[in-house]
Design a binder for these strands. Sequence first.
DNA 1: TAATAAATGAGTCACACGTTCCATTTGCGA
DNA 2: TCGCAAATGGAACGTGTGACTCATTTATTA
Lengths: 288, 288
Amino acid sequence: MGLGGATMDERVPRDFETLRATILERRQSLPKRIAQIAAYALDNPDDIAFGTAASIAASAGVQPSTLIRFAQQLGFDGFTSLQQVFRERLRERNSSYDERLAALRAKAEEGAGHRAIFDGFVAAASTSLSDISRTLNEPHFEEAIALLAKAETIYVLAKRRSYPVASYIAYALGKLKIRNQLIESAAGLNAEMVGFATPNDAVIAISFSPYAPATIEETRAISEQGVPIVAITDSSFSPLAQFAKVWFEVAEADFAGFRSLSATMALAMALTVAVGEKRRDTGRKRKV
Amino acid sequence: MGLGGATMDERVPRDFETLRATILERRQSLPKRIAQIAAYALDNPDDIAFGTAASIAASAGVQPSTLIRFAQQLGFDGFTSLQQVFRERLRERNSSYDERLAALRAKAEEGAGHRAIFDGFVAAASTSLSDISRTLNEPHFEEAIALLAKAETIYVLAKRRSYPVASYIAYALGKLKIRNQLIESAAGLNAEMVGFATPNDAVIAISFSPYAPATIEETRAISEQGVPIVAITDSSFSPLAQFAKVWFEVAEADFAGFRSLSATMALAMALTVAVGEKRRDTGRKRKV
DNA sequence: TAATAAATGAGTCACACGTTCCATTTGCGA
DNA sequence: TCGCAAATGGAACGTGTGACTCATTTATTA
């Protein structure tokens, strides 16, 4: 009776996510002070896990008894059983990303098997993604998008290791119906292709150390025609950087002598789709 | 005096790593029961963080007082201050990989800016890597390596979205001096190229839904010549699976309609390098 | 506005907690 | 073997804990 019927009809949330969902769902119908605790609990789950009822109540600005009523209203016996859920969350939480990566990499480096090779590449890719996510220069990103969005034709320029990225960009641009030209080396007509570019176009050039001479040379040539260049490379000392209007420095981790492409790929895809979106927004779409 | 001088000359470890190092360093010189707790603490740090002195002591098979002596010997006031270090560890531990990803994805989905697009692709790539790392079929992986390692020529077959992966495999195989042939569509001579393959060769075929008809057709043709096929695809119902001797099911996350390539790429690189290593081991290298 | 129920604050209590103390055992050198 | 100090086990203690109860305030309904 005294507990407002909450004890009998509800099943008690055993895991944090269910608990969270339950709280959010009932948020509107909770009394003021109870809601106050509910908000505090979701905002400071660690405090709930470690604190005492008194300390938590004080931090949340309520009485300890309110905290217990909150727990009971959710179907728990009392504060202690509620706290268990918050502790379980910390317990079951996977070890940190860095710890996991370090483990993968350690396994890859000392372990000899083929699985270790696989783990090594996964670790390298994850590291690269994590790095670029942290270090991406947003103003440069916006500038590159703007620059590419107003291009009539986007030329894509990359050889050897970077070529897969270029071919993917070309594929994605095509799907987005953005006119583009992949500068491949096959036919030996690159110089002529490059010659068609005008300042109204734009170039995405990709090259990593050791920089393919052909990429450098073609980039230089095309920049002399006044075509704006977006470069994706691995250092600001890259020969590509001097020709580029905007450049991205992407640090890819490597394994077994092969560098990852995951960060470059993610950046390339993001650039491509962002350009597509920008064009749609500004009504300049379908230049094909 | 009574505490053996441990209280005065040592600085108290404030973070878990220091504490861990300190314990490992002194391991030899610790009394039996204290060492017993020390081992337990390093093996079950979560229990130390959440348990009571009594429950921990019971789990470790010692008296509560011993637990406190252990803490004091490390320079702490008592068990409580030791416990703080173990709790701090859980607190400061980065949020879990999944939580971080979820945050990235949430930002990407609700947020509108270009940065959100980038985050979306990074999240998709990370998810894909995480998935494949968990689900990779190791026996299949070994089988594929064995199969490819004994091939005279490795044919690489992929179109459209999968083409960048194929081009990277071809590049890497080339660098490893493994004879390979990329089946490109440019010249329209694919059927003839495919015709050269023999049962002593092998094929890596990559295709994802919607499966490029050309890839399916060429895979079928080449399989009829008795050439063993390793397929990388997205489902066991894939048309590629029926022709393949070994196939990998790779679930790539997508963003904005573009699926990630990171997992496929990692698998492809691992396959390639593993094949290279296997060849070196078995002395069959340099078929070029 | 009055009557009633819900929500809240505050005081109380039993108890489990971390800690201390002391008796006993163990290890070690003479 | 003896003697001493370190290590250990176990009981006792005082504090702070979570939970309960009840008086008071606030919201709701007639």
